[in-house]
Design a protein around this nucleic acid. Sequence first.
RNA 1: GGGCGAUUAGCUCAGCGGGAGAGCACUGCAUUGACAUUGCAGGGGUCACUGGUUCAAUCCCAGUAUCGCCCACCA
Length: 791
Amino acid sequence: VENIEVDGHMWHFKYPLADGVTYDYVEKDEDGNETLRETRNYISIATTRPETMLGDGAVAVHPSDERYASIVGKLCEIPVGPKEHRRLIPIITDEYPDPDFGSGAVKITGAHDFNDYEVAKRNGIPLYRLMDTKGAMRADGAPYADESAKAKQIVASGVLPDANSVDTINLVPEDYRGLDRFQAREKIVTDITAEGLAIMVPETDARLGPVKAPLAPEEGGEVRAEVPLVEAKKIMQPFGDRSKVVIEPMLTDQWFADAETLARPAIEAVEQGRTKFVPSNWDKTYFEWMRNIQPWCISRQLWWGHQIPVWYGPDETIFCGRTELEAYEKAALHYSTPKAVDALATVKAGRASNFLTRDPDVLDTWFSSALWPFSTLGWPDETPELDQYYPTSVLSTAFDIIFFWVARMMMMGLHFTGKEPFHTVYIHALVRAADGQKMSKSKGNGIDPLDLFDEYGVDAVRFTLAAMAAQGRDLKLDTGRIAGYRNFGTKLWNAARFAEMNDAKFDPNFEPANAKDPINRWILSSLSDAVDSVSQGIESYRFNDAAADLYKFVWNQFCDWYLELAKPVLQGDADDAQKAEARATTGYVLAEISKLMHPFMPYITEVLHEHLRGPDAGVAALAQWPEGKVRDADAIADIEWLIGLVSAIRSARAEMGITPGSEIDLTVVGAGAETTARLARQTSIISRMIRAPKVGVADAVPAGAVQIVYADVTLCLPVAGIVDFEAETKRLDEEISRNAKEIDRLEKKLGNAKFVSNAPAEVVEENREKLAGYQAEGAKLNEARARIAAI
RNA sequence: GGGCGAUUAGCUCAGCGGGAGAGCACUGCAUUGACAUUGCAGGGGUCACUGGUUCAAUCCCAGUAUCGCCCACCA
């Protein structure tokens, strides 16, 4: 079923009062002033489904509605059908009608409307069924004259017969019998209007919906012609998923489960934390539904599914049993007749009996699905599988199914096994169509994952979904994002190719902790951090964080920096031991990446895993999860300093318009012992990364140099003759202004006594350190600026 | 009508009480080099609005606006 808003009409008809009754109809405005007073001999009723008028059992008004107080308890006539057999129905009071809506009077058709059903039940109003299962007006039963006499008899006697006998009464007049409900509607509207029982309004009335054009004055019509009041109205109507046909509410016999009783332990399980929702705010949705749960209609008129385990005796007595035999046993006991006992013997002997007939209905698909966690494991038998795998652990699903499935698995699991079916319900976002709408089969606006697989690869799509699996409720899948992650897979693949070309293999004898080169120790330490953050992300269901951390580590650390830093070693004139360590590190990190990324990109990583570790290592999915082996803070500080230095120089070179190919020496001024040592260690790498033939230390800034303030030193690129001093001045001025802004901000903050006294000490200290850093940088920048000015 | 949620860069989305982030798109430069499905560098945001709490608010609270989803639905 799908609810769709459609353009409907609302008609207004007169139900004439019986026995010549009239009343003063008084309408008041908001201030209580009378705006209309007239004597009426009818009550005005609005409806969007005039064909259901035939089944009306009463007209209801609100008890506080003064307009109708004088006619409550009187009878009015349904203005449809042969005049001599028209039915009279009582005017009753009920809380349901809204006095401010329409005329304030509602016709009650208990068999064809959910609200009316409740009103009818409260007030002992008969439920007359008007349609058959095809949505056509009933054509069964006796002639209308006889049937309507039965209905009149009910009103006259004041005694409500049992539901089944009321249901046999067909109150559809011969003229409408067998018509589809829509045809009947049209004919009924025409007939009532022709008889003058439609509410008429001037044609200028603003409320008018589609109406027939009135006669023009020259054709004999009046200037202010009156036309039937038909309001255009948006109606939410249920349509069949497959049939695309309007579904009519209709009274039928169904089986219901007592959902309230089932829900109680399921609510407690979540309240007491035995089952948790992730993200946790979804438990609100769960509680909201479970605490307002309605009886659950579990029978369906379909031919597939679990059949309802109910058998009927010859007198319609109900026998419920796990098996047919059980039902026959109960029947034999109940009837104790030779026939019933014989039937039991027949069934016991394995032969068929037709003493009982089985209910043809099947269970709601969600009823059967709710059994899934344990019925798949052999339940109701006590199987080893059930013992081992129930309760399950984590249910991963989308929020749109919390009502339908999650809640019901909870109810059924607790009812039948006494245990919650899972300890965690992980709720992920829902992929929406490009237009932001929920994908739906009937709208045909879905995205076929297979098309995405064809275009971008399964790994890319999977990684994208993981990367976007954040807390949000829905996500519009951005194909640009998928393309980006496809490129990520390619990047990893090419890195592996590079490793292979350089003979960097996974070496089972390599012990990461023994690596000596700071570059290797750095990437191994970074790997340890990545292992931590990815593991943590997965364990806390933050898959997007895990994916982002992987992306940054693999691309921005391993590919962008480690492999570039390793090139001089692998391809230069380093000694054999250094080369071997770089190869082993590369192979090792790649092999660990293959495992770390395997949950996110299973295909490419499986290939890499096998390729690196050899066919005997087993599949990546079953491999030991990575573990951080090296944590070297010095190596991290060293290499991060190096990366910062290279980036700063590249940035300045690009900004100064120095062509990437040109070679410029680097002179470092103001280096302390640590920086001098670092420089010495990394000279060849720096030289290669920034195209500086010579890297040296000096006490003074060389003439005509670009000056870059970096950490505690000034990096000088002597470019006399090439450099544009105006541009250099501008660059430094911008740096100085940026720096000054930070200093200003921090000074203000630290100058605030309330901040210093109220903020945590470490925050204050942190800000002080920052300020000191900026001040030192500012001093150097100003010196650099002064040197330029001096030239 | 009831409930839930969203509003952050051009787009798709993270973040979240102490200096605004990613991918894509955009700009400049680079092509015999693992990778142009690339590299280097860069531009771009009053974190919807209005109040409040706080030493400090994109983040917490209240209200407003807009949008969305679920449930129910006025004859």
